[in-house]
Amino acid sequence: MVDVQLSDAEKTYIIHGAQDNLREDGRGCEDYRHLEIETSVVSTTSGSAKIRLANTEILVGVKVELGETSPENPDKGRIEFFVDCSANATPEFEGRGGEDLANEISNMLARAYDCPSCLDMRKLCVVEGKKCWIVYVDVLLLECGGSLFDASSIAVKAALYNTSIPRLTVTHDEGHTELELSDDPYDVQRLDVYNSPCIVTLSKIGHSHVVDASQKEEACCLARLMLAVTDKGCVTAMKKEGSGSFDVSSIEDMLETGKKVGQSLNKSLMEVLVSEDRNMKKKYMTGYLR
């Protein structure tokens, strides 16, 4: 990730601040930075969302394609994640430079969504054992400002909420199966993302932990714990990252905080998405032109 170089004095300032629940930008330990979400930004996709979390900018496009079902799950559709770290974010990502980070993010997202209650994959099956919808979730990282995992998971959830899948009617005729696409472009099926998880990254700074670390804070943190938390407080994936280590009790503390923060994050995200969906027709300036 992008290098931020801090002196020892600056690090001490940040660590002491986190202990007193007052961070360098005035937030408390469990507060997120300002977050902006916009959906339906790219018209070549089935659903898209753009998110800006302070300096982090992420664009997610969802495309659905009709494909073969997998032999292991003949009655389910599939979801596939792909992350691309654009060189726009930092020149280090040029060529294949961003691939490691991209794989890490896409694996974490895939694990977070690999849980039957997150997204009902059975609804994506068209003809059992033959055809299903494959949902391609493409995450494009345009600017790095910390909390990439959190921001991408939020953007993915928003884009999935925005996704509309064309409705198909299946008719069986003497052994042949025919698929018919509805003529009405508004006759679509929406995904139920109510139980989809958001990733909350807790960074250990000194003896306390903070959510949504800025780049400066990431530079002082040796270990972080990532939790994929659903609206009900279920943790669907968990991952420790970084060179430092945790003791058992601090993981328990972090789990508590993560669940609490994750639940409120999911709740406010859904509120925003629903209200934006209602006001869709009012917007006239979109994307980067605002």
Binding site: G61, K63, L140
Partner: peptide, 12 residues
């Protein structure tokens, strides 16, 4: 460097 988002075209 020229790159196209995977979702930028009609076909992925």
């Amino acid at each position: 460097q020229y790159s196209m988002a995977t979702f930028s075209t009609g076909e992925r």
